[in-house]
Design a protein around this nucleic acid. Sequence first.
DNA 1: ATGCCAGGTAACACCTGA
Length: 265
Amino acid sequence: MNAAAQRKVKVATWNVNSVKARLPNVLSWLKEFAPDVVLLQEIKCMDDGFPRLEIEDAGYNIATHGQKSYNGVAILSKSPIEDVERRLPGGDADEHARYMEGTVFGKLRVATIYLPNGNPIGTEKFTYKLAWMDRLYKHMERGLADGEMRLYGGDYNVIPTDEDVYNARAMRDDALMQPESRTRFRALLHLGLTDCLRAFNTLPHQYSYWDYFAGSWPKNNGMLIDFLLASPAAADALVNAGIDREPRGKEKASDHTPVWSELMV
DNA sequence: ATGCCAGGTAACACCTGA
């Protein structure tokens, strides 16, 4: 346990599906939910297109790893963001902006992850997903060796079990459900990581994503694909976790909603 | 079985997403 715990820090991960299109939603959520650290995915803009001034005015420091049109990740923090690293090692030809990490509150190492979707299966997209997960495994294995407090948050694009989706049968050929994807996700946990949500909520059918079409949100036809994974030191400091469904019900909502946890740092 | 909606880019159509 962290005997010197001093401050409760609320960390959230949220795939916003374009930070520009979502700016009013993001700003109102930052004000209402008041997270200390936010891990964003799918900002869908380059670094110089990020709405930096508006989010700084809300009280956050910002680090971005942007890309034109697709992907892109960011870290927001009420503390300075130190020692930022923007590449997931091992993919020399990989130009996708899907990973970034930095240190917040002087001691908590956080990563924002936009794991490849991988559909359709049987194509190079699925091969890329699996290779990316293997790279993530190796990087986490190295990172966890120092025993520090780490949180790996993001859109993992994996449905871990059939109880994490509204209709497993309808999704059985989806890349998010394949044994190869699930095995690799479990392998990350077997490194010693704790799924923050599941430390506090073991109910089935807890969702973080709902399709835009076919009335998925009002019918609660969702899936759980966004996670905060804690290193042992961070897991020891956890005090709460959950899913904030409010943003998904707003006008012009992202198809994902924030997953959050609180820990003593 | 299905990208049914949404965003970006570009250009009035196509790509990507999960």
